[in-house]
Amino acid sequence: MENVIELRGVSKALKAFTIDNMDLQIKQGFVTGFIGANGAGKSTTMKLIMNLLQPDNGEVSVFGLDYASHEKEIKDRIGFVYDSNIFYESLNLKDISRIVAPAYKRWNHQQFKAYVNQFELPLNKPIKKFSKGMQMKASIAIALSHDAELIIMDEPTAGLDPTSRRELLDIFQEVMVDGKRTILFSTHITSDLDRIADYIVLIDEGKILFDKPIYELQEQYALVKGSTELLDPDTEAYFIKIDRSPNGFQALTKDATKVKEVFGNHVVIEEASLEEIMFYMKGADSHYD
């Protein structure tokens, strides 16, 4: 399995934030969901991948190429969507496509028009008069109209109403049908990912806590509830983080099978949602991966 993005030992110190020695691999042909709380480092990592930020140390390679000598070639094959509008807002979509299209070798105007029709986007209305959902759709139409092999989206569903979110997720699924494309998709709305992600990367405080196939997460991770009497230093070792209350404890484990073996029917084991995993992993020791 090939990696379309690789970060090796990447460090970047910003004013209020540091990424230290990060390793990350994004597999080709899959949807990877990049999750973490606000301020966990998702956007910074995305910017490092897009070469908007250059690492202080370490290497970033995309399609096996480095930015120092292949910047144009790499970006020609990437479609990007950011959470805020980056297009000249007084321009309409037609003019924006006039600016963007000649930058790409494989811009497909028919394809662009097809997406514009599908998303019901007006071509002659200034972008600033677009709703948030329309702006996102416009970004996506542009990102998908030059035969990009890698689509990088930073919080594409943020600020969208549930209907638009669903619509967008459907579009992403359609885009993935041919199996050649890779999507890296950051979000803090984890329910978006249950439907479309193949891999989940969790980041917290600039550190990658895990990078796993989603089915593995669903199989291995579980929420465990039981009486606090069951807890002692030995049994606590099975859990990533434990919440205690007068009524008992609730904890996240990454080894559901083992917990079942050890505690048997003394505890209740439930499937952990991505949100719960994210919540319990936050602030837990990073040696759990």
């Binding site: 897009m50 908007l52 144009k72 970006k75 990437i78 980056i86 790409y104 070798k105």
Partner: peptide, 8 residues
């Protein structure tokens, strides 16, 4: 951000 995300 736009210009630097395009192949330039």
């Amino acid at each position: 951000i736009l210009l630097n995300s395009l192949p330039y």
